[in-house]
């Protein structure tokens, strides 16, 4: 897991254990505004474009899933 990703997440929404939490969306830790902020930040940090189709709970429910999505999008170029 990328440390920078955890830093970004903690900056947007502190007081969540991002290493273990797998219900970030389902349990409302990250709301729609946090997602808007997060997507803008991830795109800038990792030089990727996150299409709307990727904005689904499965991709954002855990830091691990987010990291997988980032890697996939980087590979797809």
């Amino acid at each position: 897991m990328d440390e920078r990703l955890i830093e970004i997440l903690e900056d947007i929404q502190p007081e969540v254990d991002y290493l273990t939490c797998t219900t970030l969306i389902d349990d409302h830790y990250l709301n729609s505004l946090a997602i808007i902020s997060l997507v803008a930040e991830l795109e800038e940090e990792y030089d990727i474009t996150i299409p709307t189709v990727e904005i689904i709970p499965e991709n954002f429910n855990s830091a691990e899933n987010m990291w997988k999505m980032i890697q996939r999008l980087q590979e797809e170029g």
Partner: peptide
């Protein structure tokens, strides 16, 4: 999400943040 993730609004979010 399509609107808030559109290029102009994404730019706005990054600047405003």
């Amino acid at each position: 999400f399509p609107l808030s993730m559109s290029k102009p609004l994404k730019k706005l979010t990054t600047k405003a943040r």
